[in-house]
Every structure is written in structure tokens, then in C-alpha cells.
Design a protein around this nucleic acid. Structure first.
Lengths: 337, 337
DNA sequence: ACCGGTTGTGCAACCGGTTGTTGTTGTAAG
DNA sequence: CTTACAACAACAACCGGTTGCACAACCGGT
């Protein structure tokens, strides 16, 4: 019972018209008489005509598709970002093609080609953890394809970028701990290749410096996964002079840190305080609720998409100045400090 | 500096060949001599040729794209499903176009047309909460487009379906509580319009019955959001004869339940035990780690995709028997029981 | 009857890759 | 020295919608 969807030609033949007339009629082109338009539209509805965007896309090279290149659809951050992007993309009548690089440089390169091959009109990207060479991105930009980076960005690249102001958010988080009389503050950071990790670490350092607390390398651990964070946090807590506060720079590391604290049975925040970067629904799953910086995934998604559409809508000849947008990550105080 | 990507014609002209020859050379068609193939491939690499899948798609009506129609990209369940689907889709060399219906019937219908317009080769769908008329799905199936439903399924429709065996998983969860000497077991269920909620409630009831425990309506609350769950759970805990165990049927309700328990300061599992349907990374964010049924989002995603590809790969004339696959939601014991 | 201008529609090329068919070589068999 | 048939490459149509241009029909004005 395979039945192909109706095409312009089908409508044209039924009505004894040419497909070009049908095409124009359906988009209310003024060249076509009102009578013909009505006739065509009625027939189109009757045949349940769905215009083939693939064909249209081939012709005018506009696919109405935006590509999203993400490292991983993890549970914590990306869903918020996608939600934000999707909202804007839908508003503009576009669709979203999502590809994961799975933190692999090769897949990232491959995925960029896939997006190009699919005639996407713009790309929103976050860089894989293992990527150190960024020429593939630069090539795409040189092709004139609008591109916006979020979260994990490429330095010295000639396009828009949306970020959390990580350094100052981290500064605020650590300052908050200090205001609660904490002096022995540990940080659980991520893969130090990532700008995010470095920036958050820098915010941590400058907060310490600002309040005259000495930076202690023993209090710095770097972890990519909860298990690693748990293990290394336990090591921290077993130091002769253990920290009295921990700053976890992501939801994933936070999970490990809290498991470690739970396992040692330490009361929070009495024996140890905790702050983290953590999305809203997750803060309150811990006991006590975590004092956290909002990573603002939703806003990052929305902003990236809006900036991308600004680039798409303007003439391809105009090459707007690359913009860097910093969003403020607000600190929300919970019971953990 | 707008530069369009190289096409077959570009390569052909540079080499004094015809584009058809170039096309065949690139796919190692035996009609083309080895020498020509090498020459073409070298030139293709040099020009960074990326085949335009849109054009190919138009020709042979294979877009290498699968459509995913989901109600909402929430944090808890869908990311796992997407991850699973993506893995399989990538394995087959396909891509994923994701659309959200946002629980709206109109958007669901619209999204189906978008998927068709994009020549998707198959659709994986979960039905919106507000959809009561399913003819749009049936139309798509009649067009011969392979389709698989997961999680929220359409009854009496002529295609494959992937589900968790909710009833028996809920039965197991409650039986586990009973085996831990719990007799006053409350349930925090979801929107009772959803089959899922009803099935999990039924599993709960039959477990009680099976062990001769009387069903008590005071112990049944129905909640859609964490706040609601928290409020109603507090009411439960303040009953003259409060429950000694709670069964939360989703991550969202679990979050509210735990907040309530935390706020009352009740020791878990001593005063109150907790089981829930909860994805892996979230169980261990609670203290103690929650005993939970795995909703198996990843497996549901993988299975749906695999079943879809089975339908895609077989001849379109063969119309395989619709299959219903139930996945077992395994109970993983944590410290909460 | 003749002209300039509008209106509505048809024709054909095009986007870029695919594919059935045809055409041109070269080589070996008869 | 034909004839036969590979082997290889060119040609052209096609997918379905879009779009510049041609063209026919019709209008009122001279």
C-alpha cells in the first residue's frame, strides 16, 4: 500500500496547469489569478500535498535546517541548551539536526561535513574535549556558513561566541564560601584542556588571592567523571589537613563529590561546605540543597540561536564583527553553605 | 569570502571528465578504471569535496535521516532515549532530526508533515499528552513510511511499539518493599491520564493484593511536578498513621518525595523506605542511594531504532507483523530500602 | 487596424548527484 | 583483415520545486 506523496506535477496534471503555475499559486504569487490560486489550493489540500523541502532546498540552497554540534547529550547541561535552541529555531520556522561528537575529534570533523552535506544554513557548536586543531571550524566559517559557539569555545576564531562568565561566577562562588568563614577551600575541576575548566579555576584562584588566602595545590583535583571525582574527593577528605569546603565545577563532578562526602558521613555544611555549578532541577536532589551557580543552559541555547539567526538573516556579504556574549551565572544559596 | 563547496561538476571540469564518471569513480564503480578512480579521488580530496546529500536524497528518495518526534526534551528520560537512538542511527550511517510536540496535538501534526517534507526514511515517535485522534499517524504509516512508537504509544495502530513492562516492574518494586517488612506503602504516581501512570499504579495494587495487604487510598497521591510531590508527601508523612515506605513512579516525583523526607528529617531507610523509577545517574545523587527500577531510556532508544531499521531495510512491499516489545525494568537495590 | 501595456500562464533551465543507455576506443578471436 | 566484445567514459534524463523569460490574450487609446 505504498503511496508516494503528491507532487506539484500531480496537482498540475489534475488541473491541466503547468507545475510552475501551481508552485506560484501555492505561495500566493501575484502573477497568478485569484481563481487559479483557490483552485490549486483546494486540490493541494485534497491530495494532502506536502511540499518537498529537499527539492526546494536543493534549488535555493536554503534547507531551513540548523545544525547543532554537541560533544555529548549528557543529562545535565545539554538538554537545557537544546531546549533553548529548539525554542528559537522553531520560532523562525527552522528545524534542528543534532549531532554528537562523543568527545572525538574525528567525529567532530566528520559531523561538520555531514552538516554541510545537508545544506544546513547555520551551525551551533560546542567543541569536543579532544580537539586541539580548529582548522575544520575555520574552513566552515570561510565558506560563509554562519556559526556560533557556545560553552566550549574556540579561541581566536572569527565568529560569535556565547559563554557563561565562568571566571567571575567562580569568583563569586568561592567568595561566598569565604564569607562563610571557610579558608581551606578545595576545587574539583574538570579536564584542564577545556577553557571552561581553566576559567573556573582562575576564578577560584583570584578569589583566594583577593581575600589573602594562599593557593594550595593539594586542594586542587581534576576529574572528568563522577567515579573519579568520588575517589579523589575521598583522598582530599583523608588529608592530614582536610579542606572545609569544596567547589565542584560541574554537575558531574558534584555528583562524585557528594557521594564521597556521604560515604564519609560528614555533615554538610557543618564540617564541609559545598558549592557547585549545577542546573536547577538537580541542586535540590541533594540533601542539603546545594548552593550553586546556574549554568544557564536554557539562556545559552536561546542566545546562541538568536545570534545565529542574526547572522543568517543579514546579507552573506556583510561579515558582522564577531561578538562575544557573556551571561552571568547567578549564585543561588542553598543549605550546603 | 563566500566560497561554495566543490561539486561533482567542478571535479569533472578540472579533470576533463564527465560528472557521471566522477560520481561513479568516487563510489568505486567497476565501470571506471582504477587510474581514473585514483585521479578523481585525489582531486576530490584536494578540493575538499563533500557530496551534497540533499541532491542525492532528492534523486533516490533516501535522505539518510530518521525523524524523532518527542513530547518534550525533559531532563530525565528523553536524553537517555536520544542517546540510545543516536547510537544506533549513527551505526547505520543515518542522522537524526528531532522535533518536539511540546505536548501539543497541533504541533504533533505539523511536525509529522515537516518530517515527511524532509524525506525522512523512518520515524520514531512518542505521543503527546493531548493527542486523542491518531489518524495523522495512521496516514503516515499508510504512506509506507516505517514508524516505531516508544513509551507513550498508540493503541490499535499497525506498527511496532517499545515499552517498559511497567506493571510488572512496579510489582517488583513494591514486592521488594514488602520483603523488607514494609506494610504501609504509599505511592506517588503521575498524571493518571497516561497509560504509564495507570500501569505502574496497577503493579502497585497487584503487589499489595498478592501479599495480602489492603489497598489504602489515603496512601495514593498523584503529582506531576516535584513541588506538588513534595507538598503531598509532607501531607502523607503527617497522617496519623503515616506510611513506612514510598514508591515514586518517576524521577520528577522522586525528587519531590525526597525533598519532603529531607525536610522532615526522617532517616532513610529506618523510618521510611523509598523505591522509585529512576535513571542511573540520578539514583546516586540522593543520600542514601535510591533503590530503583531502571526506566531503561537507553535501551528503549536503541531497541526502537533497531526495530525501525529492520523495517527500513526490508522490502517496502513486505509489511512485517507489528511487534510489541516489553523491556524489563530491573530493580537495583540501593541504600534507601 | 495598430500600438503599448498589463495579466495570466507555459516553457525550460537549474540545483547536484544518480543511473540507464549509448558511443568510442582497444584488443583478441575467427 | 574483419567481427565481437570487452572496457571505459560521455550523454541525457531524472528527482521536485523554483524562477527568468517568452508568449498569448486582452485591454483601452489613437
Amino acid at each position: 500500500m505504498k503511496r508516494n506523496p503528491a507532487t506539484l506535477k500531480d496537482i498540475a496534471e489534475k488541473l491541466g496547469l503547468n507545475k510552475s503555475t501551481v508552485s506560484r499559486a501555492l505561495k500566493d504569487h501575484p502573477d497568478v489569478s485569484q481563481k487559479t490560486r483557490d483552485m490549486v489550493k483546494r486540490m493541494a489540500k485534497k491530495l494532502h500535498y506536502v511540499p518537498n523541502t529537499v527539492a526546494a532546498s536543493l534549488r535555493h540552497k536554503k534547507s531551513k535546517v540548523i545544525g547543532l554540534l554537541a560533544p555529548q547529550i549528557s543529562h545535565f547541561f545539554l538538554p537545557s541548551v537544546i531546549e533553548g535552541i529548539e525554542e528559537v529555531v522553531h520560532k523562525y520556522g527552522y528545524n534542528l539536526l543534532i549531532l554528537q561528537s562523543k568527545e572525538s575529534y574525528e567525529r567532530e570533523v566528520e559531523n561538520l561535513d555531514i552538516l554541510i552535506a545537508n545544506n544546513v544554513e547555520g551551525i551551533i557548536a560546542s567543541v569536543s574535549r579532544t580537539t586541539t586543531d580548529f582548522t575544520h571550524f575555520q574552513q566552515v566559517i570561510n565558506m560563509g556558513l554562519p556559526m556560533v559557539f557556545y560553552d566550549r569555545v574556540v579561541q581566536d576564531i572569527n565568529t560569535d561566541v556565547v559563554l557563561l562568565d565562568d571566571t567571575s561566577a567562580a569568583f563569586d562562588a568561592v567568595s561566598h564560601l569565604i564569607s562563610k568563614q571557610r579558608k581551606k577551600i578545595a576545587i574539583c575541576t574538570g579536564n584542564i584542556n577545556l577553557l571552561i575548566s581553566r576559567n573556573r579555576l582562575n576564578g577560584y584562584k583570584s578569589a583566594l588571592k583577593n581575600y589573602g588566602i594562599e593557593y594550595n595545590e593539594d586542594y586542587v583535583i581534576s576529574c572528568e567523571w563522577p567515579e573519579e571525582a568520588k575517589r579523589k574527593t575521598i583522598d582530599l577528605l583523608e588529608l592530614p589537613d582536610p579542606p572545609d569546603a569544596i567547589f565542584a565545577i560541574s554537575d558531574l563532578t558534584l555528583s562524585g563529590v557528594m557521594q564521597a562526602i556521604y560515604s564519609k558521613g560528614l555533615p554538610v555544611p557543618n564540617d564541609i561546605s559545598v558549592v557547585a555549578f549545577c542546573e536547577e532541577p538537580f541542586r535540590s536532589m541533594y540533601n542539603p540543597v546545594i548552593t550553586a551557580i546556574q549554568p544557564k543552559g536554557l539562556e545559552i541555547g536561546k542566545t546562541s540561536a538568536e545570534m545565529l539567526f542574526q547572522r543568517i538573516k543579514i546579507s552573506p556579504f556583510a561579515d558582522p564583527e564577531p561578538r562575544v556574549v557573556y551571561l552571568d551565572g547567578q549564585l543561588i544559596v542553598g543549605g550546603s553553605t
